[in-house]
């Protein structure tokens, strides 16, 4: 009886099935280690391990939300409370999925609007009266972000404030709310929302909704506390990016929801739809 030929690599018998068996063994050991590690992490505490099956986080449409949902901030007291910056909400450990970006807009927008009057809006953070929708409208900002998100901004400060009846009611929701141009435009005109640009600082500088604050999702993903430091002054938050396949605005919205906010809108058309409608855009690093 003869021995099988020896493999110079490690002295193992050089046989096809042997190599296949070794490959299967290595993969199996890796599988067992991975499953065991994740099971241990899941048992160690919430947010430590990954759920075994990933489920899609959904975005609801504004019209699908029940009208019975209490629209936050429907009283004058709420409007007054909105003068106090809100920060410090605890971010949940879970993270949104996906950070894919689409190709940037082919035609970078030109500055069609003057720079927002940031100083004025800081000095008078709640100049707008209480509205039925609870949208105080005024100074906004993101505290502690790097890049261009550190400066307060007033979204829509260049537009004429809309009549109170024209401001959409944004109910509280545990999911981001998808909003179209019509809703977003009215919020903007009423200075009734904080606009957040989820793209990179470079893309933001090429053109953005005038008055919007740059809060790149990549930064929030690395440091979820940034989402908790958003200074929305009690107003809804509108996130946007390049529209189309761009996931950044949705992902940023999920992060903001995880940080405790409950009125977060995703502008589905993004900057391209905004530009196409001829609405104010600005260039540069400032809002």
């Amino acid at each position: 009886m003869t021995d099988p030929p020896r493999n110079p690599d490690g002295g193992e018998p050089r046989r096809g099935p042997s190599l296949a068996r070794d490959v299967a063994l290595l993969v199996l050991v890796g599988l067992v280690l991975g499953v065991t590690h994740n099971a241990y992490m899941l048992g160690a505490g919430p947010g430590r391990g990954l759920p075994w099956i990933k489920t899609e986080r959904r975005v609801v449409k504004l019209q699908d939300l029940s009208p019975a949902d209490p629209p936050a901030g429907t009283t004058a007291m709420d409007a007054a409370a909105a003068e106090v910056p809100t920060a410090g909400a605890t971010p949940a450990p879970s993270r949104p999925a996906g950070a894919t970006r689409s190709t940037p807009p082919k035609n970078p927008p030109s500055a069609k609007a003057a720079a927002p009057d940031t100083a004025a809006s800081q000095a008078k953070p709640a100049e707008a009266p209480a509205r039925p929708s609870g949208t105080p409208g005024a100074a906004t900002g993101v505290k502690g972000t790097n890049g261009t998100g550190s400066a307060p901004a007033s979204a829509g400060s260049t537009a004429t404030a809309a009549p109170a009846a024209d401001v959409p009611v944004i109910p509280e929701s545990r999911e981001p709310i998808e909003a179209g141009l019509d809703v977003v435009r009215r919020l903007y005109a009423a200075k009734a929302a904080l606009f957040l640009d989820a793209r990179s600082p470079e893309e933001f500088a090429q053109g953005h909704i005038a008055g919007a604050v740059n809060l790149p999702f990549d930064d929030v993903f690395r440091d979820p506390d940034l989402a908790a430091k958003i200074d929305d002054r009690g107003r809804p938050v509108v996130t946007y990016c390049d529209g189309g396949d761009c996931d950044l605005s949705r992902n940023l919205a999920f992060s903001i929801i995880d940080a405790g906010r409950r009125r977060v809108l995703v502008f589905d058309g993004g900057l391209p739809a905004w530009e196409q409608a001829g609405l104010p855009v600005a260039k540069g690093a400032q809002p």
């Binding site: 493999n7 690599d9 490690g10 193992e12 190599l19 070794d22 490959v23 063994l25 290595l26 993969v27 050991v29 890796g30 599988l31 280690l33 991975g34 499953v35 590690h37 994740n38 391990g49 990954l50 759920p51 075994w52 099956i53 990933k54 489920t55 999925a97």
Partner: peptide
């Protein structure tokens, strides 16, 4: 649905294969 499973398991298979390559045995595998 498979993304978390892949993220959980794939790095460990990479680790085992890498260790096998560096230290052996079963380098070819």
């Amino acid at each position: 649905w498979a993304e978390n499973l892949i993220a959980t398991v794939m790095p460990w298979v990479e680790l085992v294969a890498g260790v096998a390559l560096v230290l052996g045995p079963r380098r070819r595998a």
